[in-house]
Amino acid sequence: MIGYLDFVIALALAGAMAVMLTRLCLGPSLYDRILAVNSFGTKTVLFLSVFAIMVGRADGVDIALLYALINFIATIAILKFFRYRSLDVALSQMTKRIDQVEGGQ
């Protein structure tokens, strides 16, 4: 009986993911799109976990865990790229670079 509920919830999450994709296409600014991608990723993680429990395959939870971590790192990497136009900036030099950029303005 709880299997049907899992199915309904997976379906609802898939619907929410589709709506997030519309926001990704519509989003006027770059940051709207990044936010949509991040939110889409969170919903994907939830969908994967519900799906894994629904079909009774525990491996799905591992994939969801991995997806959650990669989603976070990808968001940070994309933001870093659009801020510095390069991924080749050491984290320890970030604040220095920010000060320079803001001091210059």
Binding site: A12, L13, G15, A16, V19, M20, T22, R23, L35, A36, S39, K43, L46
Partner: peptide, 10 residues
């Protein structure tokens, strides 16, 4: 809550 948040984003 997930659906409410999604509607809010739109």
């Amino acid at each position: 809550f997930v659906l409410a948040g999604t509607i809010g984003v739109m």
